[in-house]
Design a protein around this nucleic acid. Structure first.
Length: 217
DNA sequence: GTCCAGGGCCGTT
DNA sequence: AACGGCCATGGA
C-alpha cells in the first residue's frame, strides 16, 4: 500500500527525525558501551524482563544470566529445566521474579522446541505473533517488541509512551492496542528501521530527553 | 516511608 | 469491554 507523505503520522515522524537526528548509530554505541543487548536472544530475554520495571533492574538480571551462561534462549531453557529456583534468583532484581522465571522458561522451552529463535522466525510474521501471544506472560506489547527489536519484523510496538504520545498530539480518540497499531502501520512505509526509530523517539519525547542524555543511562 | 517504572493475567461488573 | 488487584525490586 502506498503511503501518502501528507498523513499526520508520517509528518510527525519526519519532524521528530529533524529534532533528534537519526538514531541509527546511537543504539550500536549504547549497546557496545553497556555491553548488553548485543544479540537477538538477549533482546528476547530483555523484553520479558522489562515488563513493568525500570531498565536499571533489568540490566542486573541480564548480567546475572550472562554470568551463568544463561543469556540465551538455549541457556535460559537449560538452566530453568535444571533448577527453576536458580533462574528465579538470577532474575530477582527485575521484580516479579517468580512468575517471570516461569514465563521466560516457558518461552525458551517453546522456542527450543521450534528449533531455536532463528528457525521460529521463518514462520510468517502473523503466525509468529499468534504463537507468542498464546504463551503465558506474553501480551501484545511483549510479542511485538520481540518481533520488532529481536526478530527484525515490521510490527509497530504500542506501549504507555505511545498512548500518551497519541493523546498529547490528539492523533486518536481510541486507545486500544490494535487500533493504535493500525494507525501507525497504515501511516508509515512498512520498514523495520522506521518502526524502531519512531518508537524510540516517542520514548525520548515522553521522557523529555535526547539521545545524548539517554546515553548516560 | 512513598511513589514509580515500557505488562499481563485473572476475577468481577 | 473496562476496571481493580496482584505480582516484587531498586532508585529517586
Amino acid at each position: 500500500m502506498q503511503v501518502k507523505p501528507t498523513n499526520q503520522i508520517y509528518k510527525i515522524y519526519l519532524e521528530l527525525l529533524e529534532k533528534y537526528g537519526s538514531p541509527k548509530d546511537f543504539w550500536q554505541k549504547w549497546c557496545k558501551r553497556k555491553k548488553t543487548l548485543r544479540d537477538k536472544e538477549e533482546i528476547v530475554l530483555g523484553a520479558m524482563l522489562t515488563q513493568r520495571v525500570s531498565w536499571f533492574n533489568v540490566e542486573k538480571a541480564l548480567e546475572n544470566l550472562r554470568g551463568q551462561k544463561a543469556l540465551s534462549v538455549k541457556g535460559a531453557y537449560e538452566l530453568g529445566k535444571r533448577d527453576i529456583k536458580l533462574l528465579e534468583g538470577l532474575i530477582k532484581p527485575s521484580g516479579f521474579y517468580k512468575q517471570k522465571a516461569q514465563r521466560i522458561f516457558g518461552l525458551c522451552e517453546f522456542l527450543e522446541r521450534s528449533g531455536g529463535f532463528e528457525k521460529f522466525l521463518e514462520n510468517p510474521v502473523m503466525v509468529c505473533r499468534d504463537k507468542l501471544l498464546a504463551l503465558n506472560g506474553i501480551g501484545p506489547e511483549t510479542a511485538d517488541s520481540i518481533l520488532l527489536y529481536a526478530g527484525g519484523k515490521p510490527v509497530f510496538v504500542i506501549d504507555e509512551y505511545t498512548r500518551r504520545f497519541v493523546e498529547r498530539r490528539k492523533l486518536s480518540k481510541i486507545f486500544s492496542y490494535s487500533h493504535l497499531q493500525d494507525l501507525f502501520q497504515r501511516g508509515l512505509p512498512q520498514e523495520v528501521m522506521i518502526y524502531q526509530d519512531y518508537h524510540a523517539m516517542i520514548v525520548l519525547e515522553g521522557r523529555g530527553t535526547s539521545w545524548d542524555l539517554l546515553s548516560k543511562i
